[in-house]
């Protein structure tokens, strides 16, 4: 069992000794039990830190944001950041290290194990207990989730309430960390991706229809992009204007900027946006599943990333984020890479 008191102790020590400029962790949000990300800067605030099955967010996003924020400062605070990471989040750290976006000494990783459970899918839980007041959600035994609802304890088996990504996860503890909390329990994934299997079994027209239905709902709110720690580009192909514009950028340079994708949420544009995003995340996506969780239109975005995850493994024996020293998927090749598709 992960003891939250131990996480707090470590966070307090780091802050008191001035080793870190802050601790990025989970705190109880304004809407009852649901945890939200927060930056703790003062030792007296560490008691706000929580660890429970509602800690869904991938906090590595805030490491990326802090990095960008510090780059804008005239006198950046060079002390490292402490950040609470789950298994999937820690692999995101590895990808950032691999890509040299951050250096190892910039972060102190408080690794937490999901043990043999994972995080709760709010939508699934609310479908089971609609409109009831949930007072607390904690880990039970054997990966079960315990929710206290109107004073009453209810135990849910993992497959009923855990997020799909957790049910499909095979690496439920951090692969890189400085401090570790909990136990490393290797758990068997139920299926690495039943969703991808389902689509692969469809005929071509069915797949097209499936994706047309899903992607036609896309509002282009870009929540999937905004929540992704891997989407750290300063300039995205879908942005109508360029962030790379500086006061010294000439009018000619601006005029030459290519508008790759229209801003309108037309089906064709939605397709191109999501495909570009998927391919850009190939070999980088650690399947933290945040893109799918945040989508207000319930578009199964993970199915795109999972497909490429599967192919990267099948074709190149590559898994994202396992080793920060190994070359990334697209920055290397093998002589023996498959080329039977090339004429």
């Amino acid at each position: 069992m992960v003891e939250v008191e131990k996480i707090r102790e470590e966070a307090r020590r780091l802050l008191q000794e001035g080793q870190v400029r802050g601790v990025i962790g989970y705190v109880r949000g304004p809407q009852g039990v649901w945890a939200v990300p927060a930056m703790i800067r003062n030792p007296e605030d560490v008691d706000r830190l929580v660890w429970n099955p509602t800690c869904v967010h991938n906090l590595v996003l805030f490491v990326v944001e802090e990095k960008k924020e510090q780059a804008r400062q005239k006198e950046p605070d060079k002390r490292p950041l402490a950040v609470v990471v789950k298994g999937c989040d820690s692999r995101a750290i590895n990808v950032l290290l691999q890509e040299k976006f951050i250096e190892r000494e910039e972060v102190i990783l408080l690794g937490v194990s999901c043990e043999n459970s994972g995080v709760v899918d709010k939508k699934k839980l609310l479908n089971l207990v609609p409109s009831q007041k949930i007072e607390e959600i904690v880990y039970g035994n054997n990966g079960h989730i315990v929710a206290v609802i109107d004073g009453e304890r209810r135990v849910f088996p993992p497959e009923e309430v855990l997020a799909d990504r957790c049910l499909e996860c095979q690496a439920n503890f951090p692969v890189v960390y400085d401090h570790f909390f909990g136990e490393k329990i290797k758990k068997e994934a139920i299926n690495t991706s039943p969703g991808v299997d389902k689509i692969e079994k469809m005929r071509l027209e069915e797949r097209r229809r499936f994706w047309e239905e899903e992607l036609s709902r896309c509002l282009r709110c870009y929540a999937c992009r905004s929540v992704c720690p891997m989407c750290y580009c300063t300039e995205c192909v879908v942005d109508p204007i360029s962030f790379a514009v500086e006061p010294t950028t000439t009018a000619e340079e601006k005029a030459k900027k290519i508008k790759w994708i229209e801003k309108s949420p037309l089906l064709s544009e939605n397709f191109v946006y999501h495909l570009v995003r998927a391919i850009h995340l190939a070999g980088r996506c650690v399947d933290c599943g945040e893109c799918e969780r945040v989508c207000p239109e319930d578009i199964p975005i993970r199915l795109l990333n999972k497909k490429l995850e599967r192919e990267a493994w099948r074709l190149f024996n590559y898994v994202a984020g396992m080793d920060s020293q190994a070359p990334s998927l697209f920055s290397t090749f093998k002589e023996t890479d498959p080329e039977d598709f090339i004429r």
Partner: peptide, 18 residues
């Protein structure tokens, strides 16, 4: 050789969406 890797994945992705 880099192209070969990248295109291999795109080649799988496109039929996946139909």
């Amino acid at each position: 050789m880099y192209a070969r890797r990248r295109m291999a994945l795109l080649k799988e992705l496109l039929p996946y969406i139909g």
